[in-house]
Write a protein that binds this DNA or RNA. Sequence first.
DNA 1: TTGTTGTGTCAGTTGACGCTAACGTTAGCG
DNA 2: CGCTAACGTTAGCGTCAACTGACACAACAA
Lengths: 114, 114
Amino acid sequence: MFEDESDDAFRALAEPRRRAILRLVATDELAAGEIAAAFDVTRTAISQHLTVLREAGLVSERRAGTRRLYRARPEGLAGLREFLDSMWSDALDVGRRLVEAEAAEQAEHRTDVA
Amino acid sequence: MFEDESDDAFRALAEPRRRAILRLVATDELAAGEIAAAFDVTRTAISQHLTVLREAGLVSERRAGTRRLYRARPEGLAGLREFLDSMWSDALDVGRRLVEAEAAEQAEHRTDVA
DNA sequence: TTGTTGTGTCAGTTGACGCTAACGTTAGCG
DNA sequence: CGCTAACGTTAGCGTCAACTGACACAACAA
């Protein structure tokens, strides 16, 4: 369901530096050079990271003269949120089911299962 | 804030097969062999994936005789959810702010900014 | 046009990761 | 004890990914 379309996003977020870049452009639209200045690696590395983020749909690119401005694209995180929320609720449901089963087994005469 | 503690989880989820394993044990507690039987790779590979997932706090391991039963651990996804929700709301706030600014610039005499 | 600024792109290297095959380990049965 | 079943662990291999340095390109000013 949300596997093929968010596969690139998962791989993109696996890199800590890309997550840092993403947080950097979450609130402000920054140029590639401004982003690169915030890290201790080459501008080349940042440019490649930005390409990965863009192809994963996590950032948008806008050209203004010779500069390229980047901004976080929240829609790109939709698939991730679906996966996490699905996992979260499923696992929690199982937890509740187990608690209920345990309570029912240890005391079939009571009804404090909430 | 939630960087060092969820770094392993991000890397673990970057692998599609590990996400498949996680979904497999989200609702049912399965043994390593049962999990391995669901894929076309060696049990060794699955065992290594399970080690990665366990060290990332995404699954719990319970021994029963010679078997080892695994189950998804929803708490392991907490850091991820925090990151995603933070990114999501921040980026959306900026989006609303931009819409408001644009509306205010194009029509300073109206008040339909919601 | 020439020069400068802001960025992307292309080799090439290094380190990490996923996989397999062989071996080691623990639990249970006879 | 010997034997088997169910796993984990190690060594080695192939591949991918992140990084650097050199080069190419577009936009703008003089």
